[in-house]
Amino acid sequence: MTIRTATIEDLETVSAVEAECFPPAEAATKEEFEKRLTHYGKHFWLMFDGDKLIAFVDGFVTDEADLTDEMYEKAEMHRENGDWQMIFGVNTIPAYRKKGYAGELIKRAIADAREQGRKGLVLTCKDRLIPYYAKFGFVNEGVSESVHGNVVWNQMRLTF
């Protein structure tokens, strides 16, 4: 398995993995990924099995302390020197789940954010995933204001 950051050339494969991992109401569109890759491709961590993209984690950097729904749609809000690394998506295609690959990508995102001098990382997740992210040091801050995909999201933060 190899891990690298993304470029615009990864648009098709990233979009395909997202569509395989999330229901349509929650999945980012190809157009949204095009903007994201253009603005913050260095904040996409991609994992490959040979030439096959099997998992990725993405999110931009900001000085805002809380993750908002607006951030998903406005890639131009990215600030390379911001304080907080946001995590918008953790994706692993079904055939590769439960093997620790997403965890490896999360650890890499954490290590990179620490090395880049961030204050920490912020993500939102559904109730069932709170214990999973807690294993990496994320602390549940309660129900988020997010209404993304018409589901309830919890905001979790890892502070360095």
Rank of each mutant, 00 (worst) to 15 (best):
E141P: 00
L123A: 02
E64S: 09
N81W: 13
F48H: 12
E32S: 05
V139A: 08
I130A: 10
E31K: 12
Y40I: 02
E26M: 14
I87F: 04
A25E: 14
K126W: 12
D49N: 13
G142A: 01
L158V: 02
P23A: 08
N91L: 00
F22P: 02
E145D: 14
F60D: 08
V61D: 04
A75S: 12
V122N: 00
V147F: 13
M1E: 13
K42C: 06
L67E: 03
I110P: 01
A75C: 05
G149W: 02
G149F: 09
N140W: 11
I3L: 09
D66Y: 08
L67P: 02
L37S: 02
E34V: 02
H43W: 14
V139D: 10
D63Q: 11
A25P: 08
A109R: 03
E34A: 15
R128W: 15
S144R: 00
T5A: 07
A113R: 02
N150Q: 15
M156T: 03
K30L: 12
C21A: 07
F48N: 07
W84R: 01
N81E: 15
D58Q: 13
T68M: 14
D112S: 10
V143C: 05
T5I: 05
K119A: 04
Y101H: 10
M77Y: 14
A75I: 09
A75E: 06
D51Y: 11
Q85D: 04
A95D: 15
E80M: 05
L67V: 10
D127Q: 15
R36T: 06
F56R: 00
K119T: 10
T38S: 11
L11W: 03
D127I: 12
Y132I: 04
K35E: 12
I3V: 12
L11G: 03
V151M: 15
H148V: 06
V17I: 14
W45K: 04
